[in-house]
Write a protein that binds this DNA or RNA. Structure first.
Lengths: 248, 248
DNA sequence: GGTCGATTTTGATTTCAGTCAAGTTGGGTA
DNA sequence: TACCCAACTTGACTGAAATCAAAATCGACC
């Protein structure tokens, strides 16, 4: 089946999307991308602070970030917000709702974000007759699982400095995956949000940023981050030094 | 002493398996269970400390726990072990490997465990022509994602008492899901392992168990746990009291 | 039943991050 | 441009869990 692409379609289509290889279409044959294309809905941009969906809302679709950045968070029994993740272009949001009928968490734009909405019922129907898509979905779920595990890991008995180093390195890698600089980037979220994610209060965030800067590992100007000594950062983040002692 | 319920053996087919509704076959039509049955391999029991698979090993299969209990853990750069989860009968292990070709973590039996091995290539082929199975796989992945998120949440800025209360309540619920007592059960792992999972050192685990006991919430005899005041436990685990203050 | 090593407990002390309190900065807008 | 409010920073103090050290208990195996 050949589609006649209009100008706006060609700009907006999965085929031409720069994020293709990170997102659902990765590794799909051309015709399957076309089919996927048929069910993807491109919504008007969500501005800073706007909701993609709210916790408790009926689950209908999953969402892929096209531009901008999004946080997902759950409201705890006591009214506190817990931020479970930050999502950059090419990443898929809402997969945690598949099992439960309702969204367990809310998704909020950190900066103006354009979003692709993919109705899940249609995606599921399509993937029944599209093995490559089914395959891809499983891989994306698995990838998310791994990312969550890595966050667990991060939160388990690591110092504030290590947590911050890890998260900065990971952002660096994610920006690099998107063709941006790995050494100079702008964090899309507030210190408060990043602290919430890392299990640290804003005061500690501030002091920890300063300590990393004093050690000559990074250079900070508000949300602009420059990684000055990437090797030392990785050593701090993943190395033996300063981590919990092995107890065998 | 009253006999503590154990996770007893189920028959050798998915059709008759008591864990059917927790595991892969849930909600599958009879003939699909039959097909699944055709690819499931029942291995000889793995004894305490034995590996189901090791980190770095080539990914070929996912595994379902039939009896016993299993922990999954990753070895960190510095040689430390980080335990990412404990797995009871009916739960599926190894889904985090789908994306990566190799297992990112090891799975180790905490007590003698019988395991169903499901070759992933065959499972994927089967699910291509079995929509219900595909559906079920997605739901299981989503469930795992939620479980990981909930662990993140648990590790993020909660006191030792709250962490322990949460994990005990969750084990209680999981045992109940398996038809065992929610109020009296035996934890399958050591304090060290549980502490590792919770991000706490064994000394703190010991003291925290004692504090919960002193408050009359639980009664502890080694690995045997009795939940004495389930309401107060839930209040401690999920309630407003003692948690971090909302900072808006 | 006794022995040895692993697991768990207990106590004393230290330390890192949290809390409280008070600025300072900076982006948005009137 | 100046104002305002939110975001961020800084400092002093506190407290919960880590660390260090040692003893007690458990349990697997002769």
């Amino acid at each position: 089946m050949t589609r006649i692409a209009t100008l706006s379609e060609s700009r907006d289509s999965c085929h031409n999307c720069r994020l293709r290889t990170l997102c659902l279409p990765d590794n799909l044959p051309k015709e399957d991308i076309g089919k996927l294309e048929g069910i993807v809905q491109r919504r008007k941009p969500v501005s800073r602070g706007g909701y993609l969906f709210q916790a408790g809302q009926r689950f209908n679709s999953i969402y892929a970030v096209r531009t901008g950045a999004v946080k997902t968070s759950t409201l705890m029994a006591n009214g506190d917000e817990h931020i479970s993740g930050f999502h950059l272009p090419g990443e898929v949001i809402g997969l945690d709702a598949i099992v439960s009928r309702d969204h367990p968490s809310s998704a909020i734009a950190l900066e103006t974000a354009s979003i692709c909405e993919i109705p899940y019922a249609e995606l599921e129907t399509l993937s029944e007759r599209t093995p490559a898509l089914q395959h891809r979905l499983m891989r994306i779920m698995s990838r998310e699982l791994l990312a969550e595990q890595s966050t667990n890991h991060l939160l388990s008995r690591r110092s504030a400095e290590q947590r911050l180093a890890v998260v900065l390195i990971k952002f660096s890698e994610r920006f690099a995956d998107r063709g941006l600089s790995a050494l100079r980037f702008r964090l899309p979220m507030s210190r408060l949000d990043l602290g919430n994610y890392l299990g640290l209060v804003p005061e500690t965030m501030s002091r920890t940023f300063r300590r990393l800067e004093e050690q000559g590992l990074v250079s900070i100007a508000g949300k602009e981050i420059e990684i000055v000594d990437s090797g030392a950062m990785k050593a701090l983040a993943f190395g033996a030094e300063g981590s919990q002692t092995a107890r065998t």
